[in-house]
Design a protein around this nucleic acid. Structure first.
Lengths: 182, 182
DNA sequence: GGTGTCATGTAAACAGTTACATGATTTT
DNA sequence: AAAATCATGTAACTGTTTACATGACACC
């Protein structure tokens, strides 16, 4: 149940509404949850029931009312426990590799177009993260960047995602080269 | 429903039982399904009902009876349709990055031990894939490697997984360096 | 005598996605 | 006039994992 932990982590930066959390998770390049309503509002009510967050209703005229959530001391303790607990393994899901493994009956031409499609896709994804990174860098980002330490961390998180794509592109080029040289 | 497609792809190499498929998927470094019974036997009966595979019971004395599944022409057509259809996007799930993003209140020491744990974990995973690759190379592997083309493909699939881990290790070292140099 | 392999299957629980519902305001 | 933003929530569905059930044989 890691999403609950991440929500605590986000609320540890700033108090927020469910809607804010949803947008943050959906925009992020490295948070791997869809950020749909069901997930987030359920997680929040669960965290609230356990006393890990508090919620305060803000009445508004022109827009619907908000529930602003804030982390409690109990929540901070749970967050820290998680941070120091054994690390979950990463998962790489590359449907392209599945296709490659099943490509026995494809012609060399078909295989090359598949590879080219993949290269294009990864290129697009890389460009998107670079775009997001620029936006982050220009307008202050989600996290407060007054502290150097935290700035370093967020820079390296973005770098990590970009490196994953760049490494993939390098592999594709190597593969294409090996493939065209029979 | 990509698992069904991959099962077709595997059966396109060799006819097999559900148990064989299960083991293959569980041992694989790049197939991202757990390969539990429920998934595989359900998928097989579905493929069978749709006429994409046939099943033949092999009676055995000392072990339980087998159902050997083979791909049909209809199954081959479905497989090829999938191979030429639009590519699904890859997903990278790195719980470590989630922790980093939530690490605001950790001390620099705690953060460094987290990083070291991660490095160790990735190192272990890399070594495991290298081990698997050796086993594959020595005893003929799952796929028949009579054809050069296919040998090239399986070599590059393994290379892809390894490169993902190596790129991660490089990132970790870069991060540790940047971190210790304040 | 306990664990592991071979072999198939089901039940229950949990996680995740899509789609629905409401309703005012702002943008295209 | 249609679509998007703000804002919260639920229902139905699909997908995935864990655990159960059976039973012979081989290995340590």
């Amino acid at each position: 149940m890691s999403l609950n932990h991440v929500i605590l982590g986000l609320l540890n930066h700033n108090e927020m509404t469910g809607y804010d959390l949803k947008k943050m998770i959906q925009k992020s390049d490295f948070m791997y949850w869809s950020g749909n309503n069901n997930q987030i509002y359920k997680a929040l009510s669960e965290l609230n029931q356990n006393g890990f967050v508090t919620s305060e209703v803000h009445y508004q005229e022109s827009s619907p009312n908000k529930k602003v959530y804030a982390i409690t001391d109990a929540g901070k303790a749970v967050l820290k426990d998680w941070l120091l607990s054994p690390l979950e393994e990463m998962e790489i899901r590359k449907p392209f590799l599945m296709r490659l493994a099943c490509a026995k009956d494809l012609t060399e031409e078909e295989l090359l177009t598949l590879l080219n499609h993949y290269e294009e896709q990864i290129n697009i994804q890389l460009m998107m993260t670079k775009n997001h990174a620029q936006i982050h860098a220009s307008n202050g980002s989600v996290y407060d960047q007054r502290h150097e330490k935290h700035e370093l961390i967020s820079r390296f998180i973005i770098k990590n995602v970009q490196k994953s794509y760049e490494s993939e592109l390098m592999w594709i080029r190597e593969f294409k080269k090996a493939f065209t040289e029979h």
